[in-house]
Design a protein around this nucleic acid. Structure first.
Lengths: 156, 156
DNA sequence: GCGGGTGACTTGAAGCGTCAACTAAGGCCG
DNA sequence: CGGCCTTAGTTGACGCTTCAAGTCACCCGC
């Protein structure tokens, strides 16, 4: 198809490999810590965190899915499991029966509060405190540039 | 539990959120393109690529797992499926019966060669060509620093 | 040269994510 | 107000990853 492939130069390849490895390993580390210390996946943590920061500690499913960077389907499964564990409750919105509003329960809030310090410490240990403030700022710029390509709509 | 939690500052949090979102979304984009155009997952692609670059187009399972950043168990399942599809073959090493050597077949090599341009183009589109050379270099430095924390052994 | 330990995988079961239906409520338009 | 499209969410099946257990092969000491 069309033009010749522009293969990666040595330095481009090296950078890509480093990023690629990071993409594989970092999620694993974060999940591992949360799972071990709080029996939560990173995604479940984000769901609980999202709810806890919202007014009424509630959010409609679609908004929560966006916040946690997951599909609606994935969220639906996860919320069902969290509900079975007693961490979240669900009910239809009064004004629109199609909408489901999820709310974090007191038990869920307790779990989140217990999990947060360890999670933040892990993020600090592996990412934030490993980099200089300038590097962290640059990382944000870089990540945002890539994300703008990945999903152009949601760009700020 | 010792000291007070050091929560993230606003700018630290913003940077972390950007990275976190990147961690969620980039793998999806890469997997999607490979799956759609070549019926391969990113991991399967890495496995084939690793084999194709090695002497005799072969590698022992452990080394291949390291190359592709996956567990031995995961690799074993994936190689079994690739073998069923005719892209890879396996045999025990002559000098040590515990070791399994995987080899990419001609059919597998063809698939890889067909998949490579599209994959490289995707990597360029979303990452390499989105950043300046300086940013790319900085990204490599940053990723390597984090990786050094994540798994200190494998550091260069 | 044989029993116990270690190394290198392989396997099976369990859990999670994705995709493609499916359900059900709202809105619209004649 | 009755059909039809759209929106929001749920569900089930399938595939993949993980984790724990299992299988051989090699090695070491006695």
């Amino acid at each position: 198809m069309g033009s010749e492939t522009r293969w990666l130069e040595a330095d481009e390849l090296a950078a890509w490999k480093s990023l690629s490895t990071l993409l594989f390993k970092l999620p694993g580390v974060l999940d591992y810590q949360l799972q071990r210390d709080s029996a939560l996946s990173h995604f479940e943590y984000l769901v609980l965190a999202g709810l806890s920061e919202s007014p009424e500690r509630s959010l409609r499913m679609s908004d929560l899915a966006g916040f946690a960077n997951g599909s609606l389907s994935r969220l639906s499964h996860v919320v069902k499991r969290l509900e079975q564990r007693g961490f979240v409750s669900r009910r239809p919105a009064e004004d629109d029966g199609r909408i489901t509003v999820a709310t974090i329960t007191d038990a869920g809030y307790d779990v989140l509060v217990a999990a947060a310090p360890g999670h933040v410490a892990t993020v600090r240990e592996y990412v934030v405190d490993t980099l200089t403030p300038a590097q962290l700022a640059e990382l944000k710029t870089i990540a945002d540039q890539i994300l703008a390509k990945v999903d152009p709509d949601k760009a700020c």
